[in-house]
Design a protein around this nucleic acid. Structure first.
Lengths: 127, 127
DNA sequence: GCTTCAATTAACCACTTGGTTAATTGATAG
DNA sequence: CTATCAATTAACCAAGTGGTTAATTGAAGC
């Protein structure tokens, strides 16, 4: 997920790591220093620093310098777009719509020996 | 994001690519063959095949063999957990709660020369 | 000035990712 | 049997990831 990737890809990529998600969960409870954020993890300080850079690159956290400390805060806005993107698929998991389609499709084929669905793809030629 | 990663990480990682998201969007409209899915992209067939493997590994699609063709279908269930995870942060982006906290915190510090927030982190010792 | 401490940067490593071209598998059509 | 076609696998490559240890920066405290 290079720096040239689109914002949504960068957001999803940043969320695709349990350490980073745990850091965001911690920050949801309030600001924290880098040291405090890294304390729960069996991981070196540079490793935490890199995770924070990824989160900052995704716009999911902001860092502010306070003397020797860097105070991190959650910036949840990018999650909004990710949430919206997923929202569009809600009907597909609610009520198991896709399983229903599959079931109907499967039984139909068993009867008539042909594939079909509500939004049929362009038929392949079998001359 | 190795195969040993947790399901949520695998889901987010699978979504962190615009080609794969476009494939899912296409499949939301109905089943399709691998060839049909790859047609819109300026990309080789093996590249599409790899993307489909990632999506299948995340449980986001299912493939069924039909003669020479592989019919792909959307399986949106894994998105449900991702959506739920993000949902927990809704209040942080709605109403710009985090910006509010930052504002209050910033003005407070300007007045009293000390940092503080609603859920304060453990204070650092400055002996 | 010297030390200590928080954090980052530098350099390195093993592994993954996203793409390529070439070869392979399986089914269909003559 | 042979040719064709959909799709995958194999082998390869450049770049990115997630981690390490060692070195560096910058502010604080005596």
């Amino acid at each position: 997920m290079a720096n040239t990737d689109d914002p949504l890809s960068i957001t999803f990529a940043a969320l695709a790591d349990p350490t980073r998600r745990a850091i965001l969960t911690r920050l949801a409870k309030g600001e924290a220093t880098v040291g405090e954020l890294g304390e729960p993890f069996d991981m070196s300080a540079p490793a935490i620093s890199k995770h924070l850079r990824v989160l900052e690159g995704a716009g999911l956290i902001a860092r502010e310098v306070d003397a020797r400390w860097r105070i991190c805060r959650l910036r949840a806005e990018p999650m909004h777009d990710a949430h919206d993107w997923l929202e569009a698929y809600r009907r597909h998991w609610e009520g198991n719509l896709d399983r229903l389609v599959e079931f109907v499709e499967r039984t139909h084929r068993a009867d008539t020996k042909q594939r079909d669905s509500g939004a049929p793809r362009t038929p392949r030629k079998k001359p």
